[in-house]
Amino acid sequence: MSGAFKYGVSLYSYTDDLGTVMTLEDAFGHIADAHATGIELLGEANLPDYPELSTAWLDRWYGLLDGHRLEPTSFACWIDTEASRSRELTVEEAAAQLCLDLDLAKRLGFRFVRPKFGVIDDELTPHPVWEEAVERSLDLAAKHDIVIIPEIHAPTPIRHPVVEAYVDFIQRTGTKHFGLLIDTGIFQDRPLPFWQHETPEMREGAMSFLNGIKVPVEQLAEVIDHVPFIQAKFHHIDETLHDHNIPWERIVPMLKSLGYSGYLSSEYEGVRDPWVAVEQVRRQHALIRKLEREYDAAHAGQGEQADA
């Protein structure tokens, strides 16, 4: 028998609701009420004084975690390698940014940090400073017991030089404090509606990945040993619990067969009308939990038979 998934929610899901129709307290309530156990936070979105962190805010954070019985999962940060039109970060500056976020994550109780590096091409190849910046941060990550997990995000598939470079880095350094975050958007196999500011020209060009890059779920097996965290990206689940873009009916059994027992952290990225995200996250958890139960029921007793 494989282990059970853990269920979490990223505060990203409530983008635009937070601060207009929803407080942080409301968001905690919605996440806990969805029977989730983990919460994912975005530093430069949800911390009001980022990069500062007041003791009053820390008290509020830990009070909310205790009150709702939630644990911090992943802390999202950005390494803005092209910090303006005319200014690129040096390795030292990029490393300092990552270390700053590792410190913040530690104070907030997180086990993972997801850095989003600036990119140099349409395939989202990270700026070359990433490798040395991460290497210089590994000792601090070890001290804080945090794993740094850049995301594998569409249009970058699993079989790609970006992923190879990350895996090579793990093998070269032997570190246990660097891994891969899989964003389930890479498995999207049906097109997204045009987003608010998208033009047909953009969709035909570099944004064609929004039609879905359709990574075969079987390829998860090639990297799963390096994947401690999954962002459950999704866009729309209808009232019959049918996801219009992400093939959960193939993703869930594959993750179960590979023994994945980490978090699935909801990242709703659909229509941004008020409160839609609250219901969408609930539907996603109902859907994935149903598929997990079905897998478990279909494979019940197999362990015993194997032992006999």
Partner: peptide, 16 residues
Amino acid sequence: YHHPYFPPQFRPIPVR
């Protein structure tokens, strides 16, 4: 917006 993590051809990107 100048988003460093967007493909270079979409820097800047307009938000209307």
